[in-house]
Amino acid sequence: MTINKEAVKKISKLSRIASNDEFETSMIKDLNTILKFVDQLNEVDTKDIEPLSSVVEQKLFQREDVVKKMNEKEEILKNSPNKNENYFVVPKVIE
């Protein structure tokens, strides 16, 4: 599969990364190089092979539902680039 300008535009939209001509040109080159490299996997017969998403063999555990005090509101808000009282501020989303 090859990636063209349209595809790069679509992926950058999905990735929420602003795109321009320079970015698209370099991404077309890089993404195609990388995809060509990973296409080697097509040589491997994986029929009936169970996909491995995690090497962890233990089961997920359950814990008591206990309230713990951590990461208080004030501390969390401190790092926001734009805040107002108890809220994060973002550009207007409702017309």
Binding site: R16, P81, N82, F88, V90, P91
Partner: peptide, 17 residues
């Protein structure tokens, strides 16, 4: 939104991008 660097944008999506 929550931490780190933010660049301006005319709407929310453009700000993210």
């Amino acid at each position: 939104v929550k931490y780190g660097f933010r660049a301006p944008g005319k709407d929310l999506i453009e700000m993210y991008e």
